[in-house]
């Protein structure tokens, strides 16, 4: 029953020597480097990060790297419509690697542009929601008392309602348009950020360095931004990634339902919606590929966010 153990495992360290720290990277270990090396330990998350960066790159450079411009009405020919993946255009000039949609647009190019819109709207709304939510959360935590209670009631009220419903309501009232969608998404998301920031700010507020700063009669805004905020960043980053993924999915859902972005700024959701009518006749690719692109985007963001949460949370030990 007593297995013979590997000598290396059981060997006693020599007296006077500290046992070697895990990892053993020589040189200066800045917090960021340690965080980065911890993060990169998980290969799946690292892969997801690479994929994500690739997608962002595509989104940024779509107009330049697309094989065709699917929204140039002069070039699009309905004769090329509903071609299966791999087929070439009517005039033989372009190969449609992922097929075409009903109007003859190259799906691959449409997807690049769609990614651009989807990721753009998602990140934009996420950033604005983050700023708004953080400001509210910090204020609420810092001033406490009735201000805090009032704000938090508001936040709780909003968070107890499903995002889709809130978004739908807003979209009905505001109407269509990229800016209106972004506003709607911001309103849906800010409460999440506010609650997260408030929670960590409340913890940090009781720490000694805040007391010290207050004693030095530093102005509140300075204490908030230079002292409290940096320490609230870790959970904020995690929530940021997850919420951005949710925003992208929400926008896609709204566009699919026909209440999201207008036809002139098609996102992946709209592309999928366009393919809906062709599904029953077996032309699956029109909805399939944009969906895959959407899926890969959301999954990568979530994988990265998951890993960030594991790395930044000191309580969890593996």
């Amino acid at each position: 029953m007593t297995a013979s153990l590997d000598e290396r495992l059981v060997g006693t360290p020599e007296p006077g020597r500290e046992p070697a720290a895990g990892g053993g990277t020589e040189g200066v270990q800045t917090p960021f480097r340690r965080f980065a090396s911890d993060f990169l330990e998980d290969r799946i998350a690292t892969g997801a990060l690479v994929v994500l960066l690739a997608l962002v790159f595509i989104a940024l450079t779509a107009p330049w790297i697309s094989p065709t411009d699917p929204y140039d009405l002069a070039k699009v020919d309905v004769m090329d419509g509903k071609l299966a993946p791999g087929e070439t255009s009517f005039d033989g000039s372009v190969t449609f690697w992922l097929g075409t949609d009903g109007a003859g647009r190259d799906l691959l190019s449409a997807m690049f542009y769609g990614l651009r819109t989807s990721i753009g709207v998602g990140i934009m709304s996420g950033l604005i929601a983050l700023i708004v939510g953080t400001a509210v959360g910090l204020t609420s935590a810092y001033y406490g008392g009735r201000v805090d209670t009032l704000i938090m009631r508001f936040v709780d009220l909003q968070l107890s309602f499903p995002a889709i419903l809130v978004a739908l309501m807003l979209v009905t009232i505001l109407g269509k348009g990229v800016d209106k969608i972004i506003i709607a998404l911001v309103i849906v998301q800010w409460a999440y950020y506010a609650r997260t920031v408030r929670a960590s700010a409340l913890v940090e507020r009781r720490r000694e360095y805040v007391e010290a700063a207050t004693c030095l009669a530093l102005p509140p805004r300075r204490i908030l931004f230079r002292h409290l905020l940096p320490n609230c960043l870790p959970p904020l980053i995690v929530v940021g990634t997850v919420e951005t993924a949710r925003a992208i999915a929400l926008e896609a859902t709204l566009s699919f339902l026909g209440v999201g972005l207008p036809v002139t700024e098609p996102s992946l959701g709209l592309l999928i919606a366009n393919g809906f009518e062709y599904m029953l006749s077996g032309k699956y690719w029109i909805s399939f590929f944009p969906g895959i692109a959407l899926l890969i985007t959301i999954v990568s963001i979530n994988l990265v966010g998951d890993r960030l949460r594991d790395v930044l949370n000191p309580r969890l030990e593996r």
Binding site: F256, I272, S287, G291, L295, I298, V299, N302
Partner: peptide, 23 residues
Amino acid sequence: SILGFSLPTFWVGLMMIMLFAVM
């Protein structure tokens, strides 16, 4: 489970119809 909450519901629905009903 990560896949489960990353998959956009409407797209999965479409694919399900594609697979189980059409094909």
